[in-house]
């Protein structure tokens, strides 16, 4: 691959090496490369415009609300919860989620343990359940520090874990994705599954936050 090293696209970045805010349009270099690759793939019959549109729509439909439904089910249905913890991939199939080619490992928060998910090497994430990962999850600061000083990182999300609870950090990889099962908030005993799902945020399933408590 060395021969390709000469034509790096001129990445859009600031002088300190940090990516620009991604709500800006991409550089003409980046946009022209993407457009050229896309058009070549279509001309060669590798992908079609319909397939591309379909893939974009499918990805837009994978949102954390789906994960929230799965967590709420686990809170109300002990059998489902046990299945989710032991055979994650199989359990989420009933929600139409296909984890292939990766495996899903669901880790449960308890009074003793708080779980936090990171991918230090890249950006592996349970995309089939939560959609596209947040920008901070893919950035260096989170990836570097989550494994060394998780409590400090958590505090930057406003999440303080008491010293008597252990913090366990899970480093995802290309084949194995983690999802956190947050603690069901107290005071929700008579809540419906649908209402419970409203308390489950994306961040609580990554482990940077806890589920929302009913009193806010």
């Amino acid at each position: 691959m060395s021969e390709h090293h000469h034509d790096h696209l001129n990445a859009t970045h600031t002088h300190d090496g940090k990516p620009i805010q991604n709500d800006e349009p991409p550089s003409i270099e980046a946009e022209s490369l993407e457009t050229a690759v896309r058009e070549l793939l279509m001309e060669k019959g590798v992908i079609t415009a319909d397939e591309l549109r379909g893939a974009i729509e499918a990805q837009e439909q994978r949102r954390p609300e789906l994960g929230a439904k799965i967590i709420a089910r686990a809170w109300v249905d002990e059998d489902f919860k046990q299945k989710l913890l032991s055979h994650g991939d199989m359990a989420v199939r009933s929600f139409g989620v296909d984890m292939k080619p990766t495996e899903l490992c669901v880790v449960e928060n308890t009074e003793e343990v708080h779980n936090l998910v990171v991918c230090t090497l890249c950006s592996c994430y349970p995309r089939a359940i939560l959609g596209i990962p947040p920008a901070w999850y893919k950035r260096r600061d989170y990836r570097s520090r989550a494994v060394r000083e998780p409590r400090s990182v958590l505090s930057e999300f406003g999440t303080i874990i008491s010293e008597d609870r252990q913090v366990r950090v899970h480093d995802s990889n290309a084949d194995l994705r983690y999802l956190v099962l947050p603690i069901r908030p107290s005071g929700t005993d008579d809540w419906s599954e649908e209402d419970l799902a409203e308390l489950v945020t994306r961040d609580s399933m990554i482990g940077v936050a806890e589920a929302i408590t009913p009193d806010g």
Binding site: Q21, N22, D23, P25, P26, A30, E31, E34, T120, L121, I132, P134, A135, W136, R139, R140, D141, Y142, R143, S144, R145, V147, R148, V153, E156, F157, D171, V208
Partner: peptide
């Protein structure tokens, strides 16, 4: 291989955006 290296604040509010069309 970033794991464990010193780095800056995560700043989750600033570093959050809906993916662009591109």
């Amino acid at each position: 291989d970033y794991g464990g290296l010193p780095a800056g604040l995560v700043d989750p509010v600033k570093n959050e955006h809906e993916p662009t069309h591109w």
